[in-house]
Amino acid sequence: MGEFLTGSACFVLAMVALGLVRILRGPADADRIMAPQLLGTGGIAVLLLLAAATGAPAVVDVALSLALLAAFASVAFVLAKGSPAPGKADEP
């Protein structure tokens, strides 16, 4: 059972990696900010699988923390975008 769960974790991680490649290439910033989102969900899945595979219940707490904070990056990004900083633009 442990081998299967670890293997599944590996598979999910590979899927996340593939998605990451696509997302980081953009083209818009809003695309890129999906990367933490993707890693949030995928990372939680990997951690839960590993917790079950290795029988370390405390690892679930790590997943719990990630789940709590999963939306933070997106929210911070949207709020910061909404209020561009004062200060003159850099010369091209």
């Binding site: 900083a85 004062p86 200060g87 003159k88 633009a89 850099d90």
Partner: peptide, 10 residues
């Protein structure tokens, strides 16, 4: 960095 940006625009 943010303060420097605020003061000088860069």
């Amino acid at each position: 960095v943010r303060r420097l940006h605020e003061e000088t625009g860069t």
